[in-house]
Amino acid sequence: MEDLKNLTNQAVEKQPEIVKRFNEMIDSQHLSHAYLLTGAGGIGKKDVAQWVAMRLFCIDLQGSMPCGECEECTRIISGQHPDVVEIAPDGQSIKVEQVRFLKAEFSKSGVEGARKVFIIEQANKMTTSAANSLLKFIEEPSGEVTAFLLAENRSLMLPTIVSRTEIIELKPLPKDRLIKELTEQNIAETDARILTRLTNDTSEIQTLVDNNWILDAHKALEKWFITATTGDITAFVDVQTRVMALAKDRFYQEKILDLMMLYAMDLLELKFDQETITYEANRRQLQELADQTNVRQLLAVADVLLPLKHQLSQNLNFQSVVEKATIKICNIFKMRGR
């Protein structure tokens, strides 16, 4: 039970504006009965839903903020409150049995009071028939019910569901906050900076951190980019020997192209005397490179790299796309250094 005590609700830190909005809705009693909260993973969707539940149930409100310490709040945070029903996919999808349970809960009165809150995580993982069977309950629930459907993107949800909910899009977390969170997990700040440029989704970040993928990718691409930008055609070989091992599937391939693009962007930033760059560790080398080249050359590099993602989406082979780009970049920088 000890670890339950360390759970906290981060809605206020992560989504202060949304929290403020809900606060006003509750104060003016304009809380509607179904919300669809959308936004990338780790953005605080569940925190917001739980915060609203705490705001409604807390027996020791501090002004308009739930205390987070009373037994109602602690039970909500630890998922033990009988009138705050939480459902998350069991494996790949939300199972029929879980939907049955949900429907039964929707039709019954509360356990402790009249008010009930439902939180359905990854609501897009319901089958179409399951989602449709919930429509009736979401549309006209009996009693004081507030349902939160959480999904990454509203386009993943059935239009019939979307039209019956109030949609609230959560803003991505500020970069600084994400970097701070990552460095707290023992990720070097330079890597954290690169990761936050790639994605805002904490679950994606976790995938990239796993098995040191981001470290390896950073090393490999550093070597590749420095070689290519000296006009050295051996960069072509690096694609096969270093880069391909990292490009396990489409997800990683896209991230590699993003990482390459970030190099080109850094060069442009430095050329125009901007302070913030992604690859802080390579600042000296990149600065030197930017000084020795002209704007036209740097834009040409960006021109080569930009269309790659689109080509990948058209099912062109990743290796040949990158190799072709490598030759082009080498050609741009051929005259440099001689």
Binding site: S107, K108, S109, G110, V111, E112, G113, A114, S142, G143
Partner: peptide, 21 residues
């Protein structure tokens, strides 16, 4: 009560939630 029915017999209290609608 507003959300439960309570049956009392002997020293036992039996609560049941209600169906709404």
């Amino acid at each position: 009560s507003e959300n439960q029915a309570l049956f009392t017999f002997d020293e036992t209290l039996f609560y049941s939630r209600l169906l709404e609608g």
